[in-house]
């Protein structure tokens, strides 16, 4: 139950206040098609006509979303609370499986792999698509063991030195190595919030995934920690495809190349980040980024 309410805030009060003057039009027309370019020339993940229901179909959380996430890009997903941006993110590595009564239809592919294929191995999929959560959730183990956890369970390291190396490179890539290299044996829960979140990122990249999903990774952090994580995201783009859900439009503008705007489960607009923020095509997008609701 908890995960569900974190993911989507259902019910009328969670929704936005609709601009008064065009309420009728709002209901009728503007969800027919997504504005902008949903495709990408070199897609890593491609979603086609995805619908997601919760509570055995009682709640329609995602409505007919088609979207590509390109190789080596950072795609930001923005929108008001309850718009379904977290839901679609969690669909990408099937984290929604653990929610009772969640149904997904349509197709989501990682390269050529159908993510919702019945024969697909979730373990294998999640080794390829890593995830970073809203609240830093380091395991109550040492910093070293936190990072080594993924490689250990998957058997990625041949021996101890190999594992040491994986841990070090992951921590380096997560820009945390310098801060923790002298206290790898201390519990990960003892780090500061920003360090914890970077530890979680290091933990995710230790498995060398192809895609990293980030669910509001900075919402629990202070501004300085946020800046560090954002910097990190930008660097990670070289090697990983990243989809990031964020509440902060500034953050989307800073870290992403493309931005997708969600509204009540619909994908309203996808465009390059520049375009979305300087010249939004859809009036709902415009209303949102100019702060009329959110």
């Amino acid at each position: 139950m908890n995960t569900l309410s974190e993911t989507i805030e259902t019910g009328p009060d969670a929704n936005l206040i609709v601009p008064q003057e065009n309420e009728g039009a709002f209901r009728e027309q503007q969800f027919e098609d997504t504005v902008g370019d949903v495709t990408h020339p070199n897609p890593r993940i491609s979603c086609r006509e995805v619908d997601v229901y919760y509570d055995h179909g009682a709640v329609h959380a995602i409505k007919n979303v088609t979207l590509d996430i390109g190789t080596g890009e950072v795609l930001a997903m923005i929108g008001p609370s309850g718009c379904g941006k977290s839901t679609i993110l969690r669909c990408l590595n099937r984290m929604n499986d653990s929610i009772d009564g969640c149904q997904v239809s349509g197709s989501i592919r990682l390269d050529e792999l159908d993510i919702y294929d019945k024969n697909l191995d979730v373990v294998l999929l999640r080794a390829q698509i890593g995830m970073v959560f809203q609240k830093p959730n380091p395991f109550p183990k040492s910093i070293y063991d936190n990072v080594a956890y993924g490689p250990k369970i998957h058997g990625l390291a041949k021996d101890k030195t190999d594992l040491d190396e994986i841990v070090q490179t992951s921590l380096e890539r997560a820009a945390l190595w310098e801060e923790v290299k002298d206290r790898l044996g201390q519990p990960g829960t003892g780090l500061s919030g920003g360090q914890q979140q970077r530890l979680c990122i290091a933990r995710a990249i230790a498995v060398s995934p192809e895609v990293i999903l980030m669910d509001e990774p900075c919402s629990a952090l202070d501004p300085i920690a946020t800046a560090k994580v954002e910097e990190l995201i930008d660097e990670l783009r070289q090697q990983y495809t990243i989809a990031i859900v964020t509440h902060s439009m500034q953050q989307a503008a800073r870290v992403s190349q493309r931005t997708a705007y969600f509204h009540l489960g619909h994908l309203v607009e996808v465009n390059t980040t520049d375009k979305v923020f300087t010249n939004p095509q859809h009036h709902l997008t415009e209303a949102y980024i100019t702060g009329r609701f959110g």
Partner: peptide
């Protein structure tokens, strides 16, 4: 290669 290693251990 990661995928292959993981698959082999499954």
């Amino acid at each position: 290669s990661t995928v292959d290693i993981v698959r082999a251990g499954l």
